[in-house]
Every structure is written in C-alpha cells, then in structure tokens.
Simulated scan of single mutants.
Amino acid sequence: MHRGIWARRLTIAVAATLTTLIACAIPAHAWEPPRFDHTSQYLSRIESRYADTDLARFHYTVTGAGSPVVLIAGGAMWGYSWRDVIPELAREHTVYAVDLPSQGYTELRRGDFAYDLPAMADALAVFLDAVGLDRTALVGHSWGGAWSLHFAQRYPDRVTRLALLDSPGLDAEKAPVTPLFTTPLAGELATELTDRNFFAESIRGTFQHRELVTDEMIDEGYAAFSRPGNRDGFLALWRNLDYRLTDAGLDRVNAPTLVLWGGADAWLPASQADRLAARLPNATATVLPGCGHTVHEDCPTETIPALAEFLR
C-alpha cells in the first residue's frame, strides 16, 4: 500500500467536514463523538483483571507461567492486539497485557494526567508496582514501544529485555497523519468525528496484508477507542509525545533490545530500525519484508517466533 494513502483519505474527509462546519459557523464543541454500541466478544473469552491505584484502574490479563513479560499495545489499540502473541509467549513466560491510560478498558482517575512520555512511563511503573513486578521484559508496539523505551530510560534496572515493534524513538520522520492531529481545531474534529469507517481505514493502513483486517478486529478496536476519555487521551498523545526525550536518552538503555520492524511500514520508514538499534548500547534490528506497521498482527508467523526467541 502506498505510504500514507489512508492518511490522505482521512485528511480529505475531515477537511471537507471542517470546511462545512466553518461555513455554517458551527462550533466544534457542538459535536458529539459517534456512539458505538458493541459487546466485546474478546472480553468474554478472556479473564479480565483490574489493578486499582490512585492513578488508574488498570485493565490487564495474565497468562502462563515463567519469567514475566509485559505487552503494551500501540496508540488507539489495547490488549486485544496481542491475542495471537499471548498464547505463544505464555508457553515459557508469565505474560501480562496491560491497557495504559487512553487504551482499552483502563479507567484514569486523575484529571491532570499529562499524556506525555514521562507520564506514560510512570503510569507503567505504577502498574508494575501494583501487580508486584520489580523487573520484567517489555514488548511494546508503536506508541507502546515509545512508552516502553522511555520507561527503560527512566528505570533501567527494572527492564530485563526490551522489544520495540515499529516504535518511534528517534527525533526523526513522523507518521504522515501527524499534522492533522496536531493542528488546532482540525485535530479535535478529526478525533471527535472518527467513526467506524474512518477507524477501519486507519487500521487497514497499518497492514500490508489488508485481508487480515476483519470486522471483529475493527469492532474490538473501535469500541475501545470510543470509550469515554480514550478519544481525548489519544489526541493529547499526538500533541504531547516528544521524541527528542527518547532520542537524547538512548544510551541509558542497558537491557538487551530487539528492534523489530515491518519493511512495508506506511507509518514510519523501516530505515529507522537500523538507525535506532545503532544508537542503543545492546540492540539488534530485524526488518521483516512485506510486513506493515502492525507487524505482529500483519505477519504473526514471522514476528511471534522472533519475539519468542529473543525473550528466551
């Protein structure tokens, strides 16, 4: 898929809506986000757990036995994203899949949460403390990888291994849709007016094998994205994540690190994989040809064994 094609479609659609609103002098706050009534089938198949803290009521799952591994999904995604990864890693590990603030079914309890890299890294620390994990391996995808990377910079002694899947961390190229969400008013409208169709198009844009994007995948993702607070958190993250912080602290990561990237990533160029790994003290880079940004769902037969071998 041509790089950024879904972003251009979304930008055009939102721009048309924005033009209409301005022409009619309708204020942005008069609009309410589209509602989506959906009963999650995935939640009925798993054992949800909750860790209650002053910061948030964290939703998570625990599967398997062995050394701990914590999985952190990307932006606008949640633990469902790891549904194929969890059973395989759980053969040798105790696998936690956690929703951080703005994700899934976690409920934030503080109105002053910053939604920036330090806040997300500290939220992860709060969760780990709540479930009694002093040290763990971390696997993060996209934004979840950036949060994991910054956690490893702030708390290096707490990370045994670090896997970064198509994760921003360099002060370098950004996703092509970034200007849409970072522009005042346009960002608010793009977020509030994102319906299931726009959401589906964005998900498909992260896959090279678009036939793998099922209705269930879209419904599970959109239902979580549409929960109260998650849209606002999503927009705040677009505007507050500053990768100059991660770029400046790459030499502080002492854990063995795997940088895994889809060679056909339409969000972030695969050239960042080698550049990121070269800046980390103990890292290797693997680029999987023909795989998109959501590499663990787009190419599970290549990604999951690579993760299992690295974590072993």
Rank of each mutant, 00 (worst) to 15 (best):
M77S: 12
L193G: 04
R91K: 15
A285P: 03
F310C: 14
P289N: 05
D215N: 13
A56L: 06
G263Y: 06
A266Q: 13
G144A: 09
L138V: 08
R252Y: 03
G111H: 10
T19G: 14
A114V: 05
D122K: 12
V295F: 13
L268Q: 01
P101M: 03
Q208D: 12
D215Y: 12
A25K: 15
D215L: 03
P228V: 02
L276N: 04
D171V: 06
L149R: 02
S67E: 15
D166E: 01
P289S: 13
G262V: 00
L55I: 09
A76K: 02
C24G: 14
N197F: 10
V98I: 14
W267T: 11
M120C: 13
V295W: 05
V69Y: 09
L189E: 13
A283P: 09
T17L: 15
A65D: 14
R239I: 09
V70Q: 04
R158S: 02
T191L: 07
D157E: 14
N282W: 10
L280G: 06
N230D: 06
G104K: 04
A285H: 09
L245W: 08
D242L: 11
R312P: 01
N240M: 08
T183S: 06
A15H: 08
D242N: 11
L71Q: 00
V126H: 08
